[in-house]
């Protein structure tokens, strides 16, 4: 039996906000330790892995590992009807019904909405995610997630968003991280300087650089990855010339969401 409860729908609403625009379905793995979710976009260019430990839930009962594929678009619709302070209950029996039930209860007027989701196939997930060796990453940048989202939006409005191949070139040296894109009639560069601790900013921009790196990423995917900002106010971007880049958002001591994709390589 699987029975979980969250007294605030906010967390799950934010999870769906962070993944449902790029990923159409996901594999949900429920085990004693918590929920592990994985999804890949239809072109298998991006993979997202989310961990929510059991402690993230107000009630967590899972006496047998349960794995299910769910349609994220349908779930996002259901969650859009939910209010942030609705109590969510997630239940599944292993009665081979291949459905999971989400119940939303609004605390003020006791209205209850019940959604049954049928299990669906998941395109190629779950996959085993190896611990990529730190040494392979030339640079890691930690910055405010709202800042990363703002930069992606600015570059998308400037870049030739009609052109599906518009890239953002992320370059890191020891002082700053640059975001560059080419539009129809010009280019745009946004420079983020590493904040000195003396500035004591609310949210620092920190750079760990082994060697300079400059990589090109599809701007549409960067925009989707920046939606992780619903779950965390910091994003860590790990860049390697020959491994998947990782965009990680730690979810306050209960887990993380990580987006992976390879840089575009000059032909």
């Amino acid at each position: 039996i699987l029975e979980l409860r969250l007294v605030q729908a906010t967390l799950f609403k934010n999870v769906l906000e962070a993944i449902s625009d790029l990923f159409s379905k996901a594999n949900f793995d429920f085990s004693g330790t918590g929920l592990e979710l994985q999804a890949m976009d239809t072109s298998h260019v991006a993979l997202v892995a989310l961990l929510l430990r059991a402690e993230a839930f107000n009630h967590y009962l899972c006496d047998r590992d349960l794995s299910m594929g769910l349609n994220l678009a349908d779930m996002a619709k259901a969650f859009r009807c939910a209010n942030n302070d609705d109590i969510i209950t997630i239940k599944a029996e292993e009665d081979w019904s291949d459905t999971v039930t989400f119940t939303f209860e609004s605390p003020e007027d006791g209205e209850i909405s019940i959604f049954d989701f049928d299990f669906v196939g998941t395109n190629g997930v779950p996959l085993e995610i190896p611990e990529f060796p730190e040494s392979e990453y030339q640079a890691k940048v930690r910055m405010p997630s709202a800042k990363f989202m703002r930069i992606c939006k600015k570059l998308s409005s400037f870049g030739d968003s009609g052109d599906r191949d518009t890239v953002v070139i992320i370059s890191v040296d020891k002082e700053c991280v640059n975001f560059f894109t080419r539009g129809k009639t010009g280019t745009s560069t946004i420079v983020c300087r590493q904040t000195q601790t003396v500035d004591k900013p609310k949210e620092p921009t920190l750079i760990e650089m082994k060697e300079q790196v400059s990589l090109a990423f599809d701007l549409r995917y960067m925009n989707s990855f920046s939606k992780g900002s619903t779950l965390s106010d910091q994003v860590t971007i790990s860049l390697s010339s020959n491994l998947p880049a990782v965009f990680e958002y730690k979810i306050a001591e209960t887990g993380y969401i990580r987006y992976y994709m390879l840089p575009r390589i000059e032909e």
């Binding site: 260019v45 085993e128 190896p130 491994l243 998947p244 390879l262 390589i265």
Partner: peptide
């Protein structure tokens, strides 16, 4: 142009 590779061959099928 720049070539985009898929991500799958960096992860292991379970």
């Amino acid at each position: 142009g720049r070539k985009q590779s898929t991500i799958t061959n960096y992860f292991v099928r379970t």
